[in-house]
């Protein structure tokens, strides 16, 4: 395992690059069933995090994760800000509480539950939760990183068959069926980027 500052800086950069490469794709998904700004919103958030990269990487890991969440809340500018922000802020707080003996799967579960409360959404509502829950399940089973990433991607694809129950897409009712949810898609892209980075740079 490399030193934490390098890890934090590396993760920030791969997430920024992934969102930058997929901004147009995420906006296109969002134009189909929402207001079309998910890609640019996420890019703005990731760029804000990246701009603070140096100070973030000097913090203890839980503090850095919590601060990244707050930066996303303050900069994303759509519902994705509070949702991704809550996820990271809760992960940071839970990690700080559990200190050395952190079971990351437990920490992630607490954080995902907080996201569900924030969005008042459930599994199957066609949201990023439909990626987060399967990712957690794979992590809890100690699946290899590559399998977790593939599960995230397949889970995002599966949101196409779902009818949106939350967010702007819910206004479309049945017409939301047939389109992949943009939030689920960005969540799978970020999960894949993080898994690939950890696979290349960390001992499992």
């Amino acid at each position: 395992m490399q030193a934490e500052p390098v890890l934090v800086a590396g993760l920030i950069e791969v997430c920024r690059a992934t969102i930058a490469d997929n901004t147009d794709h995420l906006c296109a998904l969002d134009r189909a069933i929402g207001d079309g700004d998910h890609g640019t919103n996420m890019r703005r958030g990731c760029e804000a995090v990246s701009a603070e990269g140096e100070s973030l990487s000097s913090l203890p890991f839980p503090d850095a994760v919590e601060k990244i969440g707050l930066t996303l809340v303050m900069n994303v500018g759509g519902a994705a800000g509070p949702l991704y922000g809550t996820l990271l802020m809760e992960i940071g707080r839970e990690l700080r509480k559990s200190e050395e003996k952190a079971d990351f799967s437990q920490v992630l579960k607490q954080a995902i539950d907080a996201v569900a409360r924030r969005g008042r959404a459930h599994a199957g509502d066609k949201t990023l939760l439909d990626v987060l829950y399967p990712v957690h399940a794979a992590l809890a089973k100690r699946s290899p990183l590559g399998d977790i990433a593939r599960k995230a991607e397949r889970s995002a694809d599966r949101t196409a068959a779902m009818k949106a129950m939350r967010g702007r897409a819910a206004y479309l009712g049945d017409r939301s069926i047939g389109h992949v949810d943009p939030g689920a898609s960005s969540c799978a892209l970020l999960t894949t980027a993080i898994c690939r980075y950890l696979g290349e740079h960390c001992q499992q």
């Binding site: 994705a80 800000g81 509070p82 922000g85 809550t86 939350r166 967010g167 702007r168």
Partner: peptide, 11 residues
């Protein structure tokens, strides 16, 4: 008004 306005207001 809509979704994100409520979520961001709660935040």
């Amino acid at each position: 008004d809509l979704g994100g306005a409520e979520t961001n207001s709660e935040m």
